[in-house]
Simulated scan of single mutants.
Amino acid sequence: MKLSEGVEAAIHSAALLAGLEGGATMPAAALAEAYGLSPSYLLKHLNALASARILESVPGPAGGYRLARSPEKISLLDIVLAVEGPQPAFRCGEIRRNGPGKLPASAYVKPCGINAAMLRAEKAYRAALAAERLSDIVSQYLDEADARSVAASCAFVARHGRPQKSVLKQG
C-alpha cells in the first residue's frame, strides 16, 4: 500500500503545530518552509485537515493554523482519512467475472475471497493507525531524537508561532 506524500506532510505539520502554546498559530508558508514543500501543495493538505476538524484555520494578519483539538485526541488514522479519504485502499473490481471463461452471475454467489482478505487487512491497518496518537509521536520524538533536531524544531516553532490575543467573554 502506498500513501501519498501528502500524508507525510500532514502528519509532520500536525506534529509541529503540537508545539505551539496558548492558542498560537503558524502560517502555512512557515510550515511549508519547515519541510521544503511548495506552499500551494501543503495548503491543500492543511485545508483537508481543517475540513476534518484536526486543524483550525485562523484568518487575519496574525492568523495561521493550529490544532483544533489536543494531540491526545488526534490519531494517525484521523490524519490519513483527512488526506486520503475514507475509501479502502483496495477496491475490488470483480475481475474474476471477466475474460473468456466468464460464467453466469449465479456462479459468483460467494464474496470474492481476495476482496475479503484485503478488507480484513485494511481493518487491521486502520485499527493500528487509530491506536497511534499524535501526542505519542511527539513525545517519542522529544525523548529519542538527536538533541540538535529537537532544538532546531523548538526554535522554528518559537520563531514562526504567532501568539493570539485572548478574547475575554463578558457574562
Rank of each mutant, 00 (worst) to 15 (best):
G113E: 14
A117I: 01
A48P: 02
V7S: 12
A145C: 12
L168R: 05
A48Y: 00
R133P: 13
P111I: 02
Q87M: 14
A130S: 06
E56G: 09
L46I: 05
N47T: 03
I11H: 03
H12G: 07
E72Q: 08
S135M: 07
N115F: 06
A10S: 01
S4C: 07
G23W: 09
A82S: 06
M1D: 02
L20R: 10
A68S: 10
R66S: 03
R133W: 14
L81P: 07
G6E: 09
A68R: 06
F156A: 14
N98H: 11
G171E: 12
D136P: 04
K165W: 00
Q164W: 13
A152F: 03
R162L: 14
A152P: 03
E8N: 14
Y41F: 15
P100K: 07
G64F: 02
S13C: 13
D146G: 08
F90K: 07
S106H: 04
I11P: 04
S70N: 11
S139D: 09
L134V: 04
I79A: 00
L3E: 11
G99E: 11
L81Y: 06
P111F: 05
D143I: 14
V157R: 11
I137K: 06
A127S: 15
L16D: 00
L129W: 14
A151F: 13
I137F: 07
G64C: 08
I74D: 05
Y65R: 05
R159W: 09
L55I: 09
Y125P: 08
